[in-house]
């Protein structure tokens, strides 16, 4: 094959990979509104809002998110943090359309998903999302 063509293939491959990387990075830590429901058995019954973290067994970002969620739940008694393994809840993963872990759902007492946080987010982002959920009436959140 022509060396110039080979160089073209390599450049195209690097370009496509970079594009994928930029898209994945843009998704990380992003928050979006949601309107789905989850089983209240998965929630912290004591808490007003539960951070329901969907994790997978081999996931470094899940560990980082666990630390953030755990700290917030410890500091604020109206917030709970629960972590579930996607391997044990394949139906939930499909139903909610979860594409990567960690995906953290902000769920109210009745099991309504108020927003979802994709990837490992900063503590400030999580607190802001919780504040938004408190301010917004459930009907509007969807």
């Amino acid at each position: 094959m022509d060396p110039l063509l080979i160089a073209g293939v390599l450049i195209a491959l690097v370009a496509v990979s970079t594009l994928i990387g930029v898209v994945v990075r843009a998704r990380t830590g992003r928050v979006r509104a949601d309107g789905q429901h989850v089983d209240t058995a998965l929630l912290d019954a004591e808490a007003e809002l539960t951070l329901l973290q969907l994790s997978s067994p081999v996931c470094s970002a899940c560990v980082a998110m666990r630390r953030v969620g755990g700290q917030i739940a410890t500091a604020d008694e109206t917030v709970g943090h629960r972590e579930i393994d996607v391997t044990e809840h394949p139906d939930l993963v499909r139903e909610l359309g979860v594409l990567s872990t960690p995906t953290t759902l902000v769920v109210d007492r009745v099991g309504r998903v108020r927003s979802r946080i994709i990837g490992a987010a900063a503590a400030a982002t999580v607190r802001e999302t919780l504040e938004d959920a408190r301010r917004t009436p459930a009907g509007v959140a969807a």
Binding site: V24, C59, C62, T87, V93, S100, T101
Partner: peptide, 20 residues
Amino acid sequence: FLNAAFAYCLGCQLYVLLVR
């Protein structure tokens, strides 16, 4: 490349897709 340049975590993305 994604791992090197973007700290992409294959386990975080691929695992959940295999579950789905």
